[in-house]
């Protein structure tokens, strides 16, 4: 069953006494073959979980880096179907690394929630984050995902007060994604001291591990967040490497994976010598 891949990974991380590193990549960026090569290389480079973005023409919560990544992928003909194909190919060689799909509602609405959930589960997807489907609108999607045993991962944000938190964590499983700043991806910087009490709040309300993302770009920042959260998500800084590699005429896969290595190393060693666990 797919949900257990996420639970098993967080249980293992807890046993190791460290935070997990979650790498976000845009499916098919800069093209299908390279995107697949990056995906296959991520676990070896230190990604404990992988978020795979499926591109959408109008990504209203993304900053410029992920907007551009989506346009690159769409320009190469990337689709939701091909994203699932890519994940299925990845799964042939990796049965343990959880894969979370992340994107916007309309490609899923267009496909139909039931059909999508079945196909996603068959491809080896463990969880789904949909930026523009809040709890109020999530009923039909949650039903479809439940039937296919795919986790619906929820976003909690700095504007989520305690009352709303109970709404946000309803019908969620796997983990909760805490959006560390009010804003779009990859612009403002996350502050670990500000984030810490919110992580505690989300963990308490959900009883689930909490991953923190938005605004984490450097190994230093990732390490600081790793001291207070169960997992650290980096996205924009990775997709920026794709653009940079192309600009510098360097190998995209190795450039992205080396960034993943430096970030995951920082996350892995963040709590070494730390006496209290979170």
């Amino acid at each position: 069953m797919s949900t257990s891949r996420i639970d098993a990974r967080f249980a293992a991380l807890k046993a190791e006494g460290r935070a997990g590193f979650v790498a976000y990549v845009m499916a098919g960026d800069p093209d299908y073959a390279t995107g697949l090569a990056i995906l296959k290389g991520l676990p070896g480079a230190g990604a404990d979980l992988i978020e795979v973005g499926f591109p959408f023409s109008d990504p209203m919560a993304e900053g410029p880096p992920i907007q551009r990544a989506a346009l690159r992928a769409l320009g190469e003909g990337m689709t939701l179907s091909k994203t699932l194909e890519m994940i299925a190919e990845f799964r042939q060689g990796d049965q343990t690394t959880p894969i979370i799909l992340m994107g916007y509602a309309n490609p899923l609405v267009s496909r139909g929630f039931e059909a999508f959930a079945r196909e996603a589960a068959a491809a080896g997807v463990d969880g789904l984050i949909v930026v523009d489907i809040p709890p109020e609108e999530a009923g039909p999607l949650a039903d479809a995902l439940d039937a296919a045993q795919v986790s619906l991962i929820r976003l909690a944000t700095p504007t989520t007060d305690d009352e709303r938190m109970t709404v946000v964590v309803r019908r969620t499983s796997g983990f909760v994604y805490y959006v560390s700043v009010a804003g779009v991806t990859g612009v403002k910087e996350a502050d670990a001291a500000v984030v810490a009490p919110h992580v505690t709040r989300v963990r308490k309300a959900s009883g689930l591990p909490v991953a923190v993302g938005f605004g984490i770009k450097t190994p230093e920042r990732a390490a600081a967040i790793a001291r207070v959260a169960d997992a650290v998500v980096v996205g924009s800084a990775l997709v920026d490497e794709v653009a940079l590699a192309a600009e510098l005429n360097e190998d995209v896969t190795s450039r992205v994976l080396s960034k993943v290595e430096s970030l995951s190393k920082a996350v892995r060693s963040a709590r070494v010598g730390q006496t209290t666990t979170v």
């Binding site: 930026v131 609108e137 700095p158 504007t159 709303r164 959006v179």
Partner: peptide, 20 residues
């Protein structure tokens, strides 16, 4: 009450904006 005209309408916005 849910902001729907039949199947149309609704509030498909990122969580950060929902309280607003």
């Amino acid at each position: 009450a849910n902001g729907r005209f039949g199947m149309f309408g609704g509030q498909y916005v990122p969580e950060t904006l929902m309280p607003l």
